[in-house]
Design a protein around this nucleic acid. Sequence first.
RNA 1: GGAGAGGUGGCCGAGUCAGGUUGAAGGCGCUUCCCUGCUAAGGAAGUAACUGCCGUAAGGUGGUUCGAGGGUUCAAAUCCCUCCCUCUCCGCCA
Length: 429
Amino acid sequence: MIDPRLLRSDPDLVRAGLISRGVSSSTIDELIALEAQGRTLDGERDDVRAQVNALSKQIGELHRDGRGDEAGELQAQSRSLGDAEKAIDERATTIGDALRRRLLELPNLPSPDAPDGSGEDANVVVRIEGFDEGRYGEHHRVPHWESAVELGILDLERAAKISGAMFVLYRGRGARLQRALVQFGLDRNADAFEEVRPPTMVRTDTLMSTGQLPKFADDAYHLERDDLWAIPTAEVPLTSLYRDEVLAETDLPVRLMAHTSCFRREAGSAGRDTRGLLRLHEFDKVEILAYATPDQAHDMHAELLRRAEGAIADLGLPYRILDLCTGDLGISSARTFDIEVYAPGADRWLEVSSVSWFSDYQARRANIRFRPTGGKGTELVHTLNGSGLAVPRVWAALVETYRRADGSIEIPEVLHPYMGGTTVIPGPV
RNA sequence: GGAGAGGUGGCCGAGUCAGGUUGAAGGCGCUUCCCUGCUAAGGAAGUAACUGCCGUAAGGUGGUUCGAGGGUUCAAAUCCCUCCCUCUCCGCCA
């Protein structure tokens, strides 16, 4: 959530930021009007309440002095004030709710550093690493949904039988490879990040805090009977880990990582990327996440990007880094770098990590603050996160990139310690 | 799933089954100061968050918050309803 006070203290800033993200000018006008209206009503209501409180206090004193029978007139007065308060309060609540509802659906203000633009085409390619079109032979141009299925390490048909389209079943060395990637993703960040294994089913409030609700309810799995949601990413429970808490400045930055399954309905993308591992309803991911002071946020963003990028680079996969334009940012993000890996079989760049800085947008929703050392009061933290390793797309890119002419698949060296002696997945017999 | 007991400030813990100067006794912790050769002990004061308005500021002045949300009342930590969480016992279970 953006700071509602900004609406009145710096409406131009809010307007510029939101318009660059595709929010209409009239929506912003309405918000500013609602905010002003609500504030006036709140003031009126508080004044009446103050009078009621003062009268009640007087009545209390009369009772205390044993003169309760003299309180009748004051009570009548207070009662009529109370009726007036009720009327104002109703209007104030209506407007307050309307404002809150809209604020919750409003995206974050983009960082001034984020490139301006509205669609994917406006994203800036920061750099491309390790990509050489000419290095690929015929044997690389086989998509994983063919090669891996042929090798028996991926069983898409049975996954569909069991759970439906866009679910996956890894087998044998394929399953081992998926587990190896998870371990690799965790171990390489264990120097600084605390490993967490959070719940993967969460309450509505938890999903609200990170921004998936209320706007994107259709994208998440919901267990109606128990009113629980399946997490789309470990960002969700990790961000709520310190919800409604006040940290000491000396605690910051807090670095957390978690491996979880991630569940996505992909309601808006029916029919797209349905082949193989490109887009799944359930997949494994190692998430890295940090809480930071506003001063630490910039460096932390760079650190998360460096770590996410390092994993891909160490696996020997070609990748590129995109600086997302304002119009392509996720709702909660102020700035995002995407890492896309090149998959030669599918011949596509696959997004494998979104490294985002959320400024205080999520922290305001989740009410996560810190107490500045030596300072007064509390301040909202900044939250940041990125995929340390999103398994299926990396798995796919590895299988395609490391495919040899005989159809076997070489395992990159950094994964050898996790593969129980397997350095090559043998080709078809 | 059944039965019972609870959720109060940074922490512990009164207050609730007589509704009224109770934003909340007392203690611990913390901060500042005093005392002491140092430390310990002792003494004094201060010590919640969010938020509206006024003020350059220090601050002043309203409002809200005693698990959450509703209700009763002139007035709710205290009474009523719903929900959440914790603990104990029983049942079930990896």
